[in-house]
Amino acid sequence: MSGYELIYASLLLGVFVLCAGGYGVLYTLAQLQNAASWLYGARTFYGLQWLTTAAIVATTPLAAGWKLLIVVSCLVTLRVPQVIWKYLELIHK
């Protein structure tokens, strides 16, 4: 991995997790306040996470196994805030 590839790949990995965080937080806010605007924000973050995933897969020299891990993680992330929300609702009842 060259120096620039290193910086590029690591920043993408950071952004990847940040997007998941943004998605999770905004999704929860949307549910709490029943507000569509938050939901748009949440979807935007999740969309950005896919863009990041695409960039990681297509343009970084990470090994295929790690790329697979990123893709699967991105897929799984879709459901994570939803599952957590449903579950929190369930145990609070």
């Binding site: 997790v17 998941a20 965080g21 999770g24 806010l29 709490l32 306040q33 891990l69 994570v80 957590i84």
Partner: peptide, 24 residues
């Protein structure tokens, strides 16, 4: 690499939970 890459998952759960609690 694999297992530590999964470590952020519970941390994400904590954030969502914190937002939930503070929000309610």
């Amino acid at each position: 690499g694999l297992f530590s890459a999964l470590e952020p998952l519970p941390l994400l759960g904590m954030v969502v939970h914190a937002v939930y609690d503070a929000g309610t």
